[in-house]
Amino acid sequence: MTTETTVIELIAREAKRPPEEINADTSLDAIGIDSLKAIVILAELEDAFGIEVPNEMVASIKKVGDIVGKIDELRLKKGPA
């Protein structure tokens, strides 16, 4: 499963929307993911990928693609599992 599929799946669940309606360009605001919900999603992603998302990254996340980008970046930094 790619990072994007996992991220979209988690976001879809939190936003209570079908995953097909969500893509990298979807704005989190538009689907009702506020900062608190975003934090819940990030916690799950940290668990799923075994990474740590630094606090300063949180503010720059606006779109689904932003999360995917950050996760990939962090996974790369961490090296192969």
Binding site: L36, I39, V40, L42, A43, E46, D47
Partner: peptide, 9 residues
């Protein structure tokens, strides 16, 4: 090592 994200509020 992780608390639930909404523990505080």
């Amino acid at each position: 090592e992780r608390a639930h994200a909404l523990t505080i509020p």
